[in-house]
Design a protein around this nucleic acid. Structure first.
Lengths: 128, 128
DNA sequence: TTTTGAAGTCTACAGATGTAGTCATTATGA
DNA sequence: TCATAATGACTACATCTGTAGACTTCAAAA
């Protein structure tokens, strides 16, 4: 049937770390992903394998057989993910409005000087 | 011992809906919270009771006895929560930089005309 | 006083998540 | 050819989450 787009399942925190490795470089083998994240997160290779297979089920990662093993690649782009998560946050916490989010960050002093400059430039750009 | 501040436990999606009701108005009884959210989320009163007690355990909500029942109030403020969640997102997805988040929102056309104006005004304010 | 209804507490249970071990298979180097 | 190492599949298990029913208690209405 047409319109075959199961709404993408959410990617968990741990799974996200694996996605990051794949966004950095891909395709990768499970071992290579582990090289990238196991130390940092104090994970075993088994954990990475589990997360990879869950990501495959969630259709967030694709596999290409390479001999008896797989090469894993991201199926969703980082920007796509970042965008949907950002929007989700803005919807949940700020009624879908970006301005209050900005105000919040400003109040929390989470804005650096360069953030401010960049955002100014960005807005100027949007105004054109 | 001093410094008694267990890092706040995370509030789940469902629990957040309950917090919203309490941020809107408090203190409330469990039934009143249910009046506020049960219809919207299609929950039973039992569900609200469970969520409230979990929030009490997580020290996100306080109770004051009122006869044989409790009046519930939020222990953490909405702004506090929104701030920490926003920061969490920025850290996770954008390396702690806020500018890319707004670039992302712009790209996703999640910035309305009035968002832009408001943010511009805030920027002007920050510049002072 | 007796019935009833509102509360909180306990228990339940499926699914998601974090984390990892075991196992069977198979390519590969000795 | 044979042992070995790498690999995916399967299994495990505790905790968190979403949802809610059962039970106990007690105040209030009848």
């Amino acid at each position: 049937m047409p319109g075959e787009q199961d709404k993408p399942e959410r990617i968990s925190d741990a799974e996200y770390a694996v996605m990051e490795a794949l966004w950095l470089r891909s395709p990768l083998t499970a071992l290579e992903v582990c090289d990238e994240v196991c130390e940092k997160r104090d994970w075993s290779l088994a954990t990475v394998k589990t997360l990879l297979s869950r990501l495959v089920v969630k259709q967030a990662v694709s596999t290409v057989p390479d001999g008896r093993r797989f090469l894993y690649s991201p199926l969703i782009e980082r920007a796509e993910y970042a965008g949907s998560e950002s929007r989700r946050l803005v919807d949940r916490l700020f009624g879908g409005r970006a301005a209050p989010l900005f105000a919040q960050l400003a109040e929390a002093e989470a804005l650096t000087e360069s953030d401010i400059s960049e955002i100014e430039a960005l807005l100027k750009e949007l105004r054109k």
